[in-house]
Amino acid sequence: MDKNKNSYIFIYSVILVVVVAGVLSLVAVLLQPKQAKNLEIEQKRNILAALKVTPETKDVETTYAKMVKEIAVDEAGNEVASDDALKLYVANTDKGIKYVFPLSGKGLWGPIWGYLSLNEDLNTVYGAYFDHKSETSGLGAEIATEHFQSQFSGKKIFDKSNKFVSVKTNKRGASNDNEVNAISGATITSTSVNEMIESCLKSYLPYIEKSRK
């Protein structure tokens, strides 16, 4: 048979692609539940990281179940039961009740996300966790490191006159309670972190203000 005939090449590639696609779909379907489970554990681990709790992988679920309660609020700041409302997490830690807010935004190259936990006063930051899909390593990727995240502890999201200002990164260095040091060489990622925290917390603002009173 002539292997260079167009019909042979055409049929050959069709069969090859169909077989490969079939096997791959099968693999994807079989492994999907396990992968979804991993992502769920990963999310719980991130939430716990914002609470400065870092259990072993196998203990993540039990620790999470013991400490964290998921609640949802609507835009007016009322607690609701529906699933498509804004989610937040209330945690009962040994240092008192903490509120964890999910954050998501876009960095320089791709999505960035994280969790910010506030003390019971809903003003002082307790802990923060950030991660990213594809920021530059050594620069933007530093947001995922301990030394950047630990700066957030003790910072405040309201200023002295009780106005919501969020926590911002400052290139010239933190100058007050509402600022942390930005990362040199990663201006866009640092600014993205600002925008992410501010815009995400803003949607929870009615709830935060209501609960503070």
Partner: peptide
């Protein structure tokens, strides 16, 4: 394998195996 598309066929085979490995790692070595 038809000689004229052999590189493409090789790539499909490699890509197939890589995706299997990737999915497997995501499931068992997250």
């Amino acid at each position: 394998i038809p000689g004229r598309i052999r590189i493409i066929v090789q790539l499909v085979v490699v890509a197939f195996l890589v995706i299997v490995v990737d999915q497997f790692l995501k499931a068992y070595f997250f």
